[in-house]
Design a protein around this nucleic acid. Structure first.
Length: 103
DNA sequence: AGTATGACATAGC
DNA sequence: AGCTATGCCATAC
């Protein structure tokens, strides 16, 4: 499918282990920086096998409606992958921000 | 076919 | 410095 959703899934699936990215960044990779909301909507309907826990907002904070598990689970998942967290509970984007294809 | 909504982002107050 | 309001594009109803 050429749907934007599918595109989002592809990009999200390409996020390296122990790395995170933002909705805006993904949207930028899609070609339209304004698609940030679409990215969120896509992840909302994303399949369970999608590592959506590696996607955070530009503040590095997790979404309020990440999944039924809650953002706390997401935080644990990221910590488990070696992603450093800040004191405010946000991800240290300065160290783990994924800027696109760098595999 | 039109309206409403959204896991964001940016600007203004 | 923190909160409110608006923009923006695609999907769902």
């Amino acid at each position: 499918m050429d749907n934007v959703f599918q595109r989002v899934y592809e990009i999200t699936a390409r996020i390296p282990y122990g790395r995170v990215t933002t909705y805006g960044q993904i949207a930028r990779l899609l070609g339209n920086p304004r698609l940030s909301r679409i990215v969120g909507c896509a992840l909302n309907r994303a399949p369970a096998d999608l590592p959506c826990h590696r996607v955070v907002n530009r503040l590095g904070g997790l979404s309020d409606a990440f999944s039924p598990l809650g953002k706390e689970s997401q935080r644990l998942l990221l910590e488990m992958e070696g992603v450093p967290f800040r004191l405010d509970g946000g991800v240290d984007l300065t160290a783990c921000m994924w800027y696109g294809e760098e595999e």
